[in-house]
């Protein structure tokens, strides 16, 4: 069991883990899935993606899951580990609770019931 004092996952790490929920993906597919899941807010460049992948591999939150040769190049797949799944679930729960704290206290005149609040579409380009 992980310590509850674990700092929050960084946004790119969170979305890379989230991208792997439905099964193993290779690097390029992870980038596309992360962009999709974050509504275009997180667009990872290859160098940044592999910095995140290296950290997640080191922490044991993801694992390599086989290779295939495509266009003469090795394409490696990554999958979520049990620990990665647990950390992701804890983080999602933490974010949901944090969101609830705000949403439950916001006066209705800001977001009246039935309104569809649009999140910011500002793009985040992590280093």
């Amino acid at each position: 069991m992980r310590s509850t004092s674990r700092p929050a996952l960084r946004e790119p790490s969170y979305f890379v883990l989230a991208a792997l929920i439905n099964g193993p993906l290779h690097g390029y597919a992870v980038i596309k899935r992360v962009t999709e899941l974050s509504d275009g807010r997180v667009t990872l460049a290859a160098g940044s993606l592999y910095s995140v992948i290296d950290r997640l591999l080191g922490e044991g939150l993801i694992a390599a899951d086989g290779e295939e040769i495509v266009n003469g190049r090795a394409r490696r797949y990554y999958r979520l580990t049990d620990e990665g799944c647990q950390v992701l679930a804890e983080e999602a729960d933490r974010l949901a609770r944090a969101a609830r704290v705000v949403m439950d206290r916001l006066p209705q005149r800001i977001f009246p019931l039935g309104s569809t609040h649009q999140p910011s579409t500002a793009r985040i380009r992590p280093a």
């Binding site: 290859a46 160098g47 940044s48 910095s51 290296d54 380009r125």
Partner: peptide, 20 residues
């Protein structure tokens, strides 16, 4: 953007980001 990201990625690896 990709070039800058690769160079920074390489610098991170040189700086020990993938070390035990």
């Amino acid at each position: 953007r990709q070039a800058a990201s690769l160079i920074r990625g390489a610098l991170r690896v040189h700086g020990g980001s993938t070390a035990d």
